[in-house]
Design a protein around this nucleic acid. Structure first.
Length: 629
RNA sequence: CGGGGCGUAGCGCAGUUUGGUAGCGCGCUUGCUUUGGGAGCAAGAUGUCGCAGGUUCAAAUCCUGUCGCCCCGACCA
């Protein structure tokens, strides 16, 4: 029979009796459900801890419920984002998630996002109208801007929203890292000229740096590919983490960092190969570069690698593509897609690029000497294949094009060929950079510096879109001179829910999460070691009231659990500061401990606020606490 | 979409090969004891064994289909 029952006979009554204490809360009211065992669904640390700590629950593949603890974290992240966005002059609004296909057809993205990548959830309503759930909002905001903005006098303007986004990911994974429904901050800016866009882009760049740093994340800003969204300059913000899905290549001198999709580097020089005359030689069963090199004492850089692809465009037949790289290089499909897109711009959007390996060729009804292909593979080799029309688009990477003599396949099984130079081959190529930069490659800006690899989680991406969408959607404004021009646009995204999980990925140990204070669900937890002791309860209640009144987000762990359980849970939840009210409560003494430290500090309870508040102030501004606490 | 794996209590799992009353640990409920790092004892509750067909006297177990989930790959502001 606890005293609580005397005060509040109905569990609902207590709400009307609650004093207003900021965002403080009692564990008995929080509906805290932690798991002792790691869930089977989770594969990476941050996912495991978020589920074990009772922050999130999976509803279906790639779709999560944010439980009250997580919601507190997300609200704090959002608050930081709002402050920084408002600081750039951006205006918050909220756009619909449900969008008409018509808008996406006007920008030309409906097919890419539904038929092509298939990333947009789409549906027909009862009248047969086609709709999509927004994976991004360029179309809607551009239409609105076109409606609102008439004159250069109204520019520039920037809108942002915090909203649920939908993407039908082929393989959702890692909890909130790659979900099919997630929270995103997206901002869109409109400008009268390109210089103004560039200027605001730099302002956003700065705001992004502050947002991530205030959220306690270690983030690398890297050059990025613009992808399906289009546009010119673009930069990604990568939270450094082993579990990250992206590979970042950066130079030790800090002057260059790029997503591997985009990264450029100097290839290693090839081992020279003098070829006196063009001749065939037998390579029985040697269908790989390694096999040929091993058997004939060659270096891979003395050979050519030939890859076949099938490019599916929105208009026109499927295009066969033949790509040549130096034997020691790998293709970068993102670069290849970009090259093909611009080369065949009249075919519309490139919907898919399928690699034609031996199996795929078989499925297309073709028998080619795979493993023995040469750059001069004749066009008639693919005649009769129902899904491949016309002649090859032939692309040669610079590394291959620059070779004087080389070894390549002879287009005959078990035959390779020594070729004295490209002039010996009677075919023409488009020269392009389609090779993947690799860690260890020399940097373009300084050949003495090599690229190193870091894995990262993309938590933000900013783009200078230019006038792609404003042109397609006729978002024009009247210029000072009285003419009419499409507006210049930028867009700026932050994966809010992903950011929160990235923070966990960067800040955990074997006991649980270590939230950065600025986004922790609570700043302080008061653990009552033994809730049956009158002195402990009273002292804890007093401190709870004081901290709450001082504007601290404090959790009072008043559950009827043993001390060990409360300590384990406090560590699991990752609350940055813990106040233990325990055996010395009768003497008015308490313990103060940081989640990240093993040492606790014993002090009189009257000293707590004086010690703690200045430290909290520092940490809220993104600084580390002083030593000795 | 290709390859692999898994669906049994709230969570983690055994049982499936060889068909025969549905189990273990944690959690949950009640009581007593305990009370500073996930307590002890005792008593208890909880399952359409993912779903639908089929085989059989009998199916968690065998067969067929189907749905869902996880991992690898492909893919991906």
């Amino acid at each position: 029979m606890g005293p609580a029952q005397l005060v509040a006979p109905s569990p609902w009554l207590r709400f009307s009796l609650l004093p207003i204490l900021g965002c403080s809360m009692r564990a008995t009211e929080l509906h805290l459900v932690t798991l002792r065992q790691p869930p089977a669904e989770a594969d990476i640390a941050s996912h495991r801890w978020l589920v074990r700590g009772g922050f999130i629950r999976r509803v279906t593949a790639g779709v999560y419920a944010y439980l009250p603890l997580m919601w507190r974290v997300l609200r704090k992240v959002e608050a930081i984002i709002r402050e920084e966005m408002d600081g750039t002059g951006a205006l918050e609004l909220r756009l619909p998630a449900l969008q008409p296909a018509e808008l996406w057809r006007r920008s030309g993205r409906w097919d890419t996002y539904t038929a092509g990548e298939g990333i947009m959830f789409n549906l027909r309503d009862r009248q047969g109208r086609e709709l999509g759930l927004g994976p991004t909002h360029e179309e809607v905001i551009t239409t609105i801007a076109a409606d609102l903005i008439r004159s250069y006098r109204q520019l520039p303007v920037s809108f942002y929203q915090l909203q649920t986004k939908f993407r039908d990911e082929i393989r959702p994974r890692f909890g909130l890292m790659r979900g099919r429904e997630f929270i995103m901050k997206d901002a869109y800016s409109f400008h009268g000229n390109e210089e103004d866009l560039r200027c605001y882009y730099r302002i956003m760049d700065g705001a992004y740096g502050r947002i991530f740093s205030r959220c306690g994340l270690k983030v690398l800003a890297v050059q990025a590919d613009s992808g399906a969204i289009g546009g010119a300059a673009s930069q990604e913000f990568m939270a450094v983490a082993e579990a990250g899905e992206d590979l970042v290549l950066s130079s030790g001198d800090g002057r260059y960092a790029a997503n591997q999709e985009r990264a450029q580097s100097l290839p290693s020089p090839p081992v020279p190969l003098g070829v006196a005359e063009d001749r065939l030689f037998a390579t029985p069963g040697q269908a790989s570069i390694e096999a040929v090199c091993g058997a004939h004492g060659l270096n891979p850089s003395q050979t050519l690698k030939v890859l076949l692809h099938r490019a599916c465009f929105a208009h026109g037949p499927h295009q066969p593509v033949l790509t040549v790289l130096r034997g020691d290089q790998e293709v970068n499909t993102v670069k290849l897609i970009n090259v093909l897109s611009s080369l065949l711009a009249d075919r519309g959007t490139l919907l898919a690029l399928e690699r034609l390996d031996a199996d795929a060729l078989n499925n297309h009804g073709l028998q080619l000497p795979v493993g023995f292909l040469g750059p001069d593979l004749p066009d008639h080799a693919i005649e009769g294949a129902p899904n491949l029309m016309g002649s090859f688009v032939r692309i040669v990477d610079a590394t291959a094009a620059d070779l004087a003599g080389f070894v390549c396949g002879a287009n005959v099984v078990d035959q390779h060929r020594r070729v004295p130079g490209w002039s010996a081959l009677d075919v023409s190529f488009t020269r392009a950079d389609v090779r993947a930069a690799q860690p260890g490659d020399r940097c373009c800006h300084d050949p003495h510096v090599v690229l190193t690899a870091t894995r990262g989680i993309e938590v933000g991406h900013i783009f200078q879109l230019g006038r792609k969408y404003s042109t397609a959607l006729e978002a024009n404004f009247t210029t000072e001179g009285g003419g009419s021009e499409p507006m210049w646009m930028g867009c700026y995204g932050i994966g809010v829910s992903r950011l929160a999980q990235a923070a966990v990925e960067q800040n955990h140990d074997d006991k649980g999460i270590l939230w950065p204070l600025s986004i922790a669900p609570f700043e302080v937890v008061i653990s009552v070691a033994n809730g049956q002791e009158q002195e402990q309860r009273q002292l804890a209640e007093g401190l709870y009231g004081e901290l709450g009144a001082a504007g601290v987000d404090v959790l009072l762990d008043d559950r009827p659990e043993r001390a060990g359980v409360k300590f384990k849970d406090a560590d699991l939840l990752g609350i940055p500061w813990r106040v233990v009210v325990g055996r010395d409560a009768a003497k008015g003494q308490i313990e103060l401990k940081q989640r990240s430290k093993s040492q606790a500090l014993t002090m009189a309870s009257s000293q707590l606020l004086g010690k703690l508040l200045p430290q909290l102030q520092r940490q809220r501004q993104g600084m580390v606490p002083e030593e000795g606490v």
